[in-house]
Design a protein around this nucleic acid. Structure first.
Length: 423
DNA sequence: GTCCCTTTGAAGCCC
DNA sequence: GGGCTTCAAAGGGAC
């Protein structure tokens, strides 16, 4: 039997979609054994293979690895390979059956990362999420990636078992349309906007090419990440993909404090703790200097020409930074995500991620007194809660909202450190 | 309503 | 075999 993906929009799958238990009655909860490195991984149903019936290769008692791992609802009552037919932008009609491709390792990792972040996360744009996932993915060691490749192989085996005659048949567009855009864009310079010749024509955003920062080695990138997430790298089982937090947290508090509240403050935090989420080094034993050279992941990533996709919801910052406060510009405060060329409301994301009550539109923000706990923040990233980097202090800071302008003030972060930290 | 965006990797097609 | 292209997920945004 041959499944024609190229005509998927018009194809009727010979395999019906079952909403109930699969025809083989595989258990909805079954033991999915894995190597030790999987010990902290529990993938939800649709992270692996949302098939209503587990293939023999994944059935309990016929495991591919050694240690058991329960994966709730794996292969339960929905079919990932068929589900995609109705979820891809509504392109494919639910009445026309389509067999989706099995997800690759990165797709599995990305899906899991997104699920790990929780529902409270206000960042919904998949472009940004994909970028972050890609950064983390590339920062992983080969061994850690192998974990996901292994899972991908299992999923593919499941897919193969479910659709034994399946063959990927890409629907090649017309040579003209494909080559005029894709060949010039996808493999050319990264992230440049291509405008149609007509000024009123559509502006299409070229895909970012797969680039690394120039002159930055993988080891250097890993070093920067190690500095921020030491526990993730010191795990006896090695770096699990899940040891990365769902997102790179913005950790600019000491900077904000230094600039706006106590310019000469000296932090007692260990050196390793005085970096922001992207590895910006902050002096911990000496007064923080605005001109402190920055190094680390942020600087490395700054070489990337990543795309920003601001939207109507993009976080607004007003005006220029005054000279008096220019010792540490707002950009420094925003540096974490901005270095990833994320929209400004990525900071919005960070704040919201820490304070769930503030999720939503700007209207949901309060004018003052907003605060978050760093430790609360990282509790969303399981591996970070045990990290001494994040467990030693709690701090609150807020940024007042200028109600007249309906914008955040760009100059006055307000900081409160609680007793767990020494200023 | 439809397609784009954004990522990595697998796989197919074409030369 | 190399180069190029499509498509897996995901949901907001654009048109």
């Amino acid at each position: 039997m041959d499944y024609d993906v190229s005509n998927s929009r018009h194809m009727i799958n010979s395999y019906p979609v079952h909403l109930g238990p699969g025809p083989l009655n595989y258990p909805q909860h079954f033991v999915f054994s894995q190597s030790p490195i999987f010990s902290d991984i529990s993938l939800p149903l649709d992270d692996l293979c949302r098939s209503q019936s587990a293939p023999p290769c994944l059935e309990q008692g016929n495991n591919l690895f050694n240690s058991p791992l329960s994966i709730p609802q794996l292969f339960s009552n929905c079919d990932v390979f068929s589900l995609a037919a109705s979820t891809h932008g509504g392109v494919r009609s639910s009445s026309k059956e389509h067999i989706p491709r099995p997800p690759n390792a990165f797709m599995l990792y990305r899906s899991h990362m997104l699920k790990s972040r929780g529902n409270a996360d206000p960042e919904k744009r998949q472009q940004n999420l994909s970028r972050i996932a890609g950064q983390l993915w590339r920062a992983m060691s080969k061994e850690d990636r192998a974990v996901w490749h292994k899972k991908a192989a299992e999923v593919q085996a499941a897919h193969c078992a479910k659709y034994p005659g399946y063959k990927f048949k890409p629907n090649r567009k017309s040579a003209k349309s494909a080559k005029t855009f894709q060949s010039d864009a996808y493999y050319s310079k990264p992230t440049e906007q291509v405008c149609a010749e007509s000024s009123i024509g559509p502006v299409r955003r070229v895909r970012s090419s797969r680039v690394r920062p120039q002159g930055v080695t993988r080891d250097a990138l890993l070093g920067a990440l190690k500095k921020q997430f030491p526990s993730a790298f010191s795990s006896p089982t090695g770096l699990s993909p899940l040891h990365f937090p769902p997102f790179l947290p913005t950790f600019s508090l000491p900077e904000a404090m230094c600039v706006n509240e106590q310019p000469n403050a000296t932090l007692s935090l260990p050196q390793s703790q005085c970096t922001n989420a992207l590895g910006l080094e902050l002096s911990s034993s000496q007064p923080l200097q605005p001109t402190t050279p920055r190094s680390g992941l942020a600087e490395m990533l700054s070489g990337l020409d990543l795309d920003a996709t601001p939207t109507a919801a993009t976080f607004q910052r007003n005006g220029d930074i005054s000279e008096s406060d220019a010792s540490m510009s707002q950009d420094d405060i925003f540096l974490g995500m901005e270095q990833l060329r994320l929209p400004h409301n990525s900071m919005d994301y960070d704040v919201n991620g820490l304070s769930p009550l503030l999720h939503g539109s700007m209207d949901g923000y309060q004018s003052s007194g907003q605060s978050f706990s760093c430790s609360d923040a990282f509790s969303r990233a399981p591996s970070c809660t045990s990290d001494p980097m994040f467990s030693d202090f709690m701090c609150d800071f807020s940024m007042p909202l200028d109600h007249e302008r309906d914008e955040w003030s760009n100059t006055s972060w307000m900081l409160n450190m609680d007793k767990n930290s020494n200023i």
